[in-house]
Amino acid sequence: MDKWENNKAWFLVMPVCAFVAFSAIIPLMTVVNYSVQDIIGPGAHVFVGTDWFNKVLHDYRLHDALWRQFLFSGLVLLIEMPLGILIALAMPKRGWGVPFSLVTLALPLLIPWNTIGTIWFIFTRPDIGLFGSAINSLGVAFDHTRRPLDAWATLVLMEAWHWTPLVALLAYAGLRAIPEVYYQAAKIDGASPWATFYYIQLPKMRGVLTIALLLRFMDSFLIYAEPFVLTGGGPGNATTFLSIYVVKLALGQFDLGPAAAISLIYFLIVLLLSFIFYQVLQRVGKGEKA
């Protein structure tokens, strides 16, 4: 599977580079600038080198927030990826069920994120919400405003509700792009449904599943609006993820220097992990093909 070598392909990539670089480079360099300066007022700033980085790296609240973020992303990925693939496999291939399923899956994705937090806040309230009162009437004490575990369950459930459709839609489109001949070949060979899934569907979906996993990792690791509205990082600091902590620092105390330093560290963590995921997934795919 060697690709054609041709540097003229750059011409096809140029427009994309121009549009993305336009908004990417200057803001990123400005944030790098903030992170090495102490900004006292407009036009008044002092170069402080790596002071902010040293300071934030020794901040134990930051470490706690980071571990919460890891836990949250891990849980969310473990639920959303398999569930999304299962939904895609179960979805109808023709008839009126197709548009119905597609539109239904799209519904949660189209609501602005802070609105999702607000709706779920009411939806899970034990006194006036459907979910909260239903759970309570089953005899389970549930209150996401007071009990950390309930707050976590609510957030993970909300995130799974919100984003599993993204995985499902991608996986479904990936499944539909597999040519019929592959299935016919599998049928002739007498392959079981599991073998068909493992040797045909899964490898053919590698591309879309890679992007689905990376997207879900990045976005759940950077999640802000929904937990901010739903729990506000509480009860206590139980759901103060790294993203919430950074914004508290940036906007709450107008401390641009440390906030920029954390943002860059945050960015590098996401980058590193995404890179590892990407490399591993590429290897796995290649191995299966051989």
Binding site: W10, V20, M218, L251, S263, Y266, F275
Partner: peptide
């Protein structure tokens, strides 16, 4: 196609989704 810097460029594109937006 294979061209100069293709793999780096491809991954760089996605890095633009990876920064926390607030700052």
């Amino acid at each position: 196609y294979q061209f100069m810097g293709d793999k780096h460029l491809f991954f760089w594109l996605l890095t633009n989704r990876m920064a926390p937006a607030a700052v």
